[in-house]
Design a protein around this nucleic acid. Sequence first.
DNA 1: CTACTATTCAATCGATCACTTGAATACTAG
DNA 2: CTAGTATTCAAGTGATCGATTGAATAGTAG
Lengths: 222, 222
Amino acid sequence: MSTNPKREVFANLARVGTALSSPTRIEYLELLAQAERSVEQLAGLTGTTVANTSQHLQKLRQAGLIVGRKEGLYVYYRLAGDEVVGMLSAMSRVGEAYVAEVERIVRLYFAAKDELEPVPAKEVLDRARKGLVTVLDVRPPEEYAAGHVPGAINIPVHELEKRIKELPKQREVVAYCRGPYCLMSFEAVAKLRKKGLRARRLENGLPEWRAAGLPVDQSVKP
Amino acid sequence: MSTNPKREVFANLARVGTALSSPTRIEYLELLAQAERSVEQLAGLTGTTVANTSQHLQKLRQAGLIVGRKEGLYVYYRLAGDEVVGMLSAMSRVGEAYVAEVERIVRLYFAAKDELEPVPAKEVLDRARKGLVTVLDVRPPEEYAAGHVPGAINIPVHELEKRIKELPKQREVVAYCRGPYCLMSFEAVAKLRKKGLRARRLENGLPEWRAAGLPVDQSVKP
DNA sequence: CTACTATTCAATCGATCACTTGAATACTAG
DNA sequence: CTAGTATTCAAGTGATCGATTGAATAGTAG
């Protein structure tokens, strides 16, 4: 029983767990699941200092969850792979199912869950191809550019009211954003319904869509 | 949206992450995945004190990963559900794929980094068009299908040895994979040289190639 | 009731973590 | 080269964590 190989494996897994033990780092992961970003961008998005952000990112990198790419003066980080999204989804599922607290918050903020029943991904893909629904991406343009559901229209949620006429009025709208805990699509559905459109949420965000192996379009860089 | 609900949810997910941040606790989870056990049994199996075991189990319980059942003098703990196993699997996948592998290969090849000097992207494009080099994509087929260097041959790194005859023996091979921190191309170059072929790495992976505005071929989805 | 056992609680100590601050490094522009 | 910027490194502080120890709680057996 000199060195236990199983213990070594567990120590490795624990390193991943440690990386996931900070709310801030989970937020970074969610942001990086949308598009790669520089340290400075991430610091601005989360409201922390650059040095602190850099340290968190390095913990995530050491755990193998993200990778960095240096381009000129900037270091762009992105998720190491779709497996990371799958892992986060698995964690969310456990959290939702077993942590009473999470359930409470989900109920409180995210749900009139019955009224806002989400649409499964496959259903959306089929119906979008047949022209039966309009798929709406309410995330910021740079995230849309980094990857979006094929054929989706991009209108950030805060511009939705003034650009609502870009959407076909008679067709049902399916809105999505960053993930299951992202509020933007709830907000969008509420606004659209207020204006008299039929609207529902996609069950998850783009990272989960991509991780499920569904097709993703990307805006070409100049 | 007064208090950010996303932050609250992330804080709870982080509690799950914290529960998974200790090798000992992961060991308990693995044991409990087999069968429910009492505190004393678990303490004996892991070689820790009963009090310590009890504390770990309570952290796991608070995170919603296990549940306890009191029967007489004993408290029997078991996993809260199968989703926990799924989450552990997802973690293992990430850990194995990105931590262990990278560490192993870095140790193996880092010393020889001078010998494995990479080829700049533009040079490869020119020389590939002139038929001077064979470009080799060692990523999994689905990633190759989603986009690859024009004219590149796709042989996943683990199939390289048995499919090596698909490569022209006299032409130099330039191998690439996922990115600058992906080590599959290091492995590929090492294998190719062992077989007597001239081989070098592309300086980056396909994402950087695409980001640099260089042409990318794509296999059409059905 | 008393004696005994499994589990949990409480107090403690050293190690690690999150965050801040200020400096060092790496790269670009001129 | 110098000036300027993005990122990382290094040191310091208060908080939390993991483990130990010893006592308290809850249950059983007689």
